[in-house]
C-alpha cells in the first residue's frame, strides 16, 4: 500500500501475468473423470491381456499380452495420479493448513507465550492452561509466566465484555 499508482499498476501488471485458465480445460471435474476412466481402462486392459495370453501358446502373442499388461499398469498409475491430484488436493489443503496452524500453536505454547482462551462452552483442560491464568498468580500451569505480562487487561476485558 504505497501510492495510488503503485497498487493499481501492480494490479494491472499482475493481471497481465495471470494466465486465465480456459474455464473448459481448467475444470478439475474433467480431469477427475479422465483419471477414473484411465483407471478403469487399466483394469480392462489388464484383464484383456490375461485373456489374450491365456488363449494362446504362442510366446509371441504372450509377449504382446505382457506389453498390453504393462501399458495397463501405466494407465492405471497415471489415472490414479490424476484422480488424486484433482480430488483429494482440495481436502488435503485444508488438512495441511489445519496441521500447520496447530503446529505453530504448539510451538508458541512451548515457547511459553500466552495463549488466550475464552471461557467458552467447552470446559478448558484442567491441567493445561486455565483460561484466566494471567490474572491468578496461583496458577498451576507451568511455563506460562513469561508472556503473561500484557495479559491481565486483555483477559479481564474479554471477560467483562463476555459476561
Amino acid at each position: 500500500m504505497t501510492s495510488t499508482e503503485t497498487r493499481a499498476d501492480r494490479f494491472v501488471r499482475e493481471l497481465a501475468d495471470l494466465k486465465v485458465a480456459d474455464p473448459a480445460t481448467g475444470h478439475p471435474r474433467l480431469w477427475q473423470r479422465l483419471g477414473v476412466t484411465l483407471m478403469v481402462l487399466g483394469v480392462v486392459l489388464g484383464v484383456t491381456a490375461y485373456l489374450v495370453s491365456h488363449r494362446t501358446t504362442s510366446p509371441l502373442v504372450q509377449g504382446d499380452a505382457i506389453t498390453i499388461g504393462l501399458g495397463a499398469i501405466t494407465l492405471g498409475v497415471i489415472g490414479s495420479a490424476l484422480f488424486i491430484r484433482y480430488s483429494l488436493t482440495g481436502f488435503l489443503r485444508f488438512w495441511m493448513a489445519r496441521q500447520s496452524y496447530e503446529l505453530s500453536m504448539l510451538a508458541e505454547r512451548m515457547a511459553g507465550r500466552e495463549i488466550y482462551e475464552l471461557p467458552g462452552p467447552d470446559p478448558a483442560p484442567a491441567a493445561g492452561r486455565p483460561p484466566m491464568v494471567a490474572s491468578t498468580p496461583a496458577s498451576t500451569a507451568a511455563g506460562t509466566g513469561a508472556g503473561s505480562a500484557a495479559a491481565p487487561s486483555r483477559n479481564s476485558d474479554g471477560g467483562a465484555a463476555h459476561a
Binding site: R7, A8, R10, F11, V12, E14, L15, A16, L18, V20, A21, D22, P23, G26
Partner: peptide, 19 residues
C-alpha cells in the same frame, strides 16, 4: 474487465490473488 483486461471466466482464486 479488471484493469482493462477481459477476465471473464477467471476463477475467484485468481482474482483474489490479483487483489
Amino acid at each position: 474487465l479488471l484493469g482493462g483486461r477481459d477476465m471473464t471466466g477467471a476463477t475467484p482464486r485468481d482474482l483474489a490473488r490479483a487483489g
